[in-house]
Design a protein around this nucleic acid. Structure first.
Lengths: 220, 220
DNA sequence: CAAAAAATTCAACGATCATTGAAAAATTGA
DNA sequence: TCAATTTTTCAATGATCGTTGAATTTTTTG
């Protein structure tokens, strides 16, 4: 019975991570207690501390669990669009697409885990205290790769304009990932903020046009 | 001594609001304790509960205090750009400008209060639990006015495209208001995320181009 | 000035929090 | 199977939480 035993071992740890992921995404770090996690995962209160050291360790473990996977997907998408482009480099639109398609893609999976993770990323990205370390650690390396690609696709543009454009892009993406449902209210139900397919289809042209309008070649 | 007495009375209440505003903006609703507020405002612990009922009442009071002021400014900016335009209505760019200029304008004041308030709005806007009620109550009426103006400036565009465009716009604006400093890290200090003037100058053309690219007249 | 009202302080309530050491159970390795 | 290791449970710790009723002070009102 070694196999099922191992299974059960892992199940508890993963159940804690799944529960914590969903709770942290909805209520933030301080809004979630270890007791909520334990109850949701149906394990003893002390078990999460045993496995992850403390509450912050649990939070970091939740972030880390999927960051490698999604970052690899996004990096692969970027490399694909670079390698399939000519010597002049990929088009701006292809870069923008590679940046968001993997993210919104995993959100369409049946498993709610990735959706919770996206909401969590959105929450962390617009947080002062959590965002500083976590985003830098888990996502900045990837973002820098994209910035490099953007610089090539926007020759002659001022560096500041590219960074600001990316910032606006990041904000639009973040609010979409958050899926707060406010868009539903505002549109009286005509638009569903959890329709990631619709969001993806529209964000690419919107952002691409924004980049092109702002990041024009400098005069000189 | 009635005058200074009244002054002191108001001072305590406002000191509580100022302190709570700064703390809530940085650490969120659950991240702030009544004791932190009391200590920061240098008042007794029980005083905030006396004035505002409970913690949630204090939070709502913080939100409400400046919402009327800023909403009036933004509405006035919208009406100005409408009245100064011809019969065809204002240009898209003027509407976008009216939407954000008052917000980023107050952020430039010497008093840090408005800056904290902006950060708080950003936090609330990307929060599930707080956002639902608070944003609807304090900001949705204004947003609907802008949506109406946008519809006129984008004749023939699909309603869904306008709502999604506004959503991306709102995300870009929100992350900028948050001033998390992540942009500073990413650009190695070349761009300052608290440079609201620079943000404003770039957000208008970026967002305007996004709207124009996405909200084209429907075929039919 | 005296009474009424509002503002402020004080002390304490029960509840919940994260963490931990030790005991117990389950799993692994030989 | 038996010892070693890991996992899980149990019980309790001290700290902090929001709220409140009563007492006290300050301000307003007549």
């Amino acid at each position: 019975m070694a196999k099922t035993a191992v299974k059960n071992k892992v199940r508890r740890k993963d159940r804690i991570l799944d529960t914590a992921e969903a709770l942290f995404a909805r209520m933030g770090f301080v809004g979630v207690s270890m007791r909520m996690v334990a109850e949701g995962a149906q394990v003893d209160l002390a078990l999460a501390s045993y496995h992850f050291g403390n509450k912050r360790g649990l939070f970091d473990a939740v972030l880390a669990r999927r960051s490698d996977i999604i970052n690899e997907k996004r990096l692969e998408a970027l490399r694909d669009c670079i390698s399939s482009a000519g010597a002049a480099g990929p088009e701006l639109e292809a870069i923008v697409d590679a940046f968001i398609q993997p993210l919104l893609g995993v959100g369409l999976e049946k498993d709610a885990g990735w959706r919770h993770y996206m909401e969590l990323i959105a929450l962390v990205n617009s947080s002062h205290e959590l965002g500083g370390q976590a985003m830098t650690q888990f996502f900045d390396p990837l973002v820098n790769e994209f910035i490099q690609a953007l610089k090539k696709a926007l020759p002659g543009a001022a560096e500041e304009d590219i960074y600001w454009s990316h910032h606006f892009f990041s904000g639009a993406l973040t609010l979409t990932l958050a899926q707060t449902g406010r868009l539903d209210n505002l549109s009286s139900g005509k638009v569903k903020s959890n329709d990631l397919e619709a969001a993806y289809r529209r964000m690419v042209p919107f952002v691409t046009a924004g980049f092109k309008a702002l990041c024009k070649p400098e005069k000189g």
